[in-house]
Amino acid sequence: MATPVINEVPGDADAALGNDGPPNDMRKGGTGSTTGARLHGLLTRVPLWFIVLIWAIPSLGLFINSFRDRQAQNQSGWWRVVPSDLTISNYDTVLSASSTASMTDSVLNSLGIAIPATIIPIAVAAFAAYGFAWIDFKGRNWLFIATISLLAIPLQVALLPLLKLYVGGAHVTVPFTERTLTLIPDWDLQGSLTAVWLTHTGFAMPFAIFLLHNYISGLPRDIFESARIDGADHFTIFTKLVLPLSVPVLAAFAIFQFLWAWNDYLIALTMIGSNADNFPTTIRVANLSGDFGRNAFLLPSAAFIQAFIPLIVFFSLQRFFVKGLLAGSVKG
């Protein structure tokens, strides 16, 4: 979801989300309570809530069906639901470890991927963003532009060689000899969670650096100069000054990256392959979905377990989320 283009987007997160006050006529052509204005208001609200309704129905239907047993789901649509139908047996089945479609393990796997895939890129990108913004060195601009140019790169282009790296390590053949030199040994990462979050870390880098650099390079120059005069080294400035000041943007990126890693399907599918012990939630749900027939009635509840953490994050931290979304295209 990260914006791969550099441009300024004006405005702030609160405005983007809107506020639930009384309608404000400032920006509207309508003036007060004439019939024309009322008709105008109606013409705005009816299509708006019609679209909102259409947007809500698909998830609502799935949510209701997740509480109906197999027979009810098969016999009638979710809109025919009666309160006596409702049961949590689907969630029981899906969460119990004995079931073939257990989600419990996969939730842990997803956490094992998403947490390192969030923390490590933040750290690495924050170092780099500070380095690019406030340390002068040769080749800085060149290197930074090269990093930024990778914002739009489709990750498909890197998947195959990366998988080979995890399967066998990286080796180069020394010229003129038939000997190979090992650059990265084979750590037996194929099918491991480590392979997935390492991949996420690499792929997250350009956007993370871009986002954090925007913010960190916008911090006031004075504080760095006075800290340098006081004899603080870069490490101290970074840990004591920059990190605390950058909490908002770090939080915004963290939410972004966490959702991205949690919701990812392609990278996990490629790197984990057929190692069912390490399947994250997305693969479990997708496999359940491919398995037409017997277990189809468990799909709604499994999908909601998969979406539970993202939705919590989304509803509690929406402001940060939108901030990150906007900051992705705002110049600092």
């Binding site: 998830s59 919701n263 399907y265 749900v285 997708a286 979905s289 999908a303 998969q306 979406a307």
Partner: peptide, 16 residues
Amino acid sequence: MPLAISFVGASVVWRL
């Protein structure tokens, strides 16, 4: 809200 759900989840939603 759909932006917070995975594409896999969205596919399941629409399959129904």
